[in-house]
Amino acid sequence: MTNLSNIVEILAKQALGAKQQSNQSQGGLGGILGSVLGQLGANNQQSAQGGLGGILGSVLGQLGGQQQRTAAGASGTQSLLIAVLPLVLAWIQKQGGLQGALDKLKGQGLTSQVDDWVSTGPGENAHVGAEQVQSLFDDADVEQVAQQTQAPKQDIYNAISAVLPQIIDSLTPQGERTSKQEANDDIQQVMNLVSGFLKR
């Protein structure tokens, strides 16, 4: 197993904030994502917005009011991190899975960062700038998330650059020895879980 669901769970908890965490009766990733997506409530039926990023974006938009009362900057950032998560996972799938994504990143001159993210050594993941990930992602996909979260596109790219190292790191818990197939299966599982909630 990779650690992908742990990362998703951590981001979801941060986006929900401590108050909702304590009310969380259903444990695990499914419960947390369910509660994030449950925030939509009646608005979900009114808005027929397609696209995973779009719906997650509007879900997180619902949390906006509560977040401004807490620490607006930090919470808003956490919401963007969870909103771009499906975007990043879908991008990895479009590259043909984890190995394809790693090759693509290395082809963009990010070899030292990728090696650091995949390595099992201690310390923080190497930083990647928003401008370095900008050329990797489809502008229309980013625009859609920006519209749904009502955030500038630059903020979306910043969120991608923050989430991408964590995702690659979480998909490679055994470094180079991690099974790429297992990683791809975990990506699909998380995507299915999120889209399953969206279909309810």
Rank of each mutant, 00 (worst) to 15 (best):
L110V: 02
Q188G: 10
N3W: 06
I7R: 02
L16T: 02
G54A: 15
M191R: 15
A15K: 00
D103M: 07
V84N: 04
L11V: 05
W117P: 02
A162D: 08
A126Q: 08
I7S: 01
E143H: 05
Q24A: 13
M191Y: 14
G109K: 02
Q66E: 14
G41K: 13
K106C: 06
T111I: 01
Q189A: 15
Q93S: 12
L105V: 03
Q148M: 07
L33I: 03
N43V: 09
V194L: 11
T77C: 10
P165Y: 00
N125A: 08
S195N: 15
G53R: 11
Q95P: 08
M1K: 10
D116V: 03
G73W: 14
Q188E: 12
D141F: 00
G175N: 10
I55R: 12
A12R: 02
E9C: 09
S161Y: 02
H127G: 06
L56K: 07
T111S: 11
E131K: 14
L102G: 01
N23C: 10
T178V: 08
G30W: 08
Q181H: 13
I168R: 01
G30S: 15
R177A: 13
T149I: 00
N3C: 05
I10V: 13
L52D: 04
E176P: 08
K94M: 13
D115H: 08
T149V: 06
L52E: 04
D155R: 09
E182L: 15
V84Y: 01
E9D: 12
V59T: 15
L40S: 07
M1H: 11
T120Y: 05
A15P: 05
I156G: 01
L85M: 14
E182H: 13
G38F: 01
L193M: 14
L80N: 08
P152A: 01
A140K: 04
I187D: 02
Q188R: 15
K180Q: 12
G28F: 06
V145S: 03
Q26Y: 11
A74H: 12
G57V: 09
K13F: 12
I10G: 02
A159F: 03
D185I: 13
Q134M: 11
V88P: 00
G121P: 03
T172Q: 04
P152V: 00
Q39A: 10
G28M: 06
Q21E: 12
T178P: 10
D141G: 00
D186F: 05
E143T: 07
S119A: 13
D186T: 05
L105R: 01
K153P: 01
Q66D: 13
S119V: 03
P152N: 02
G28D: 05
G175Q: 06
V145W: 04
G27V: 08
G97A: 07
V59Q: 07
G123N: 11
K94D: 14
P165F: 00
F197A: 04
L136V: 05
Q62Y: 12
V163K: 01
Q132Y: 05
W117A: 03
G196K: 15
Q62P: 11
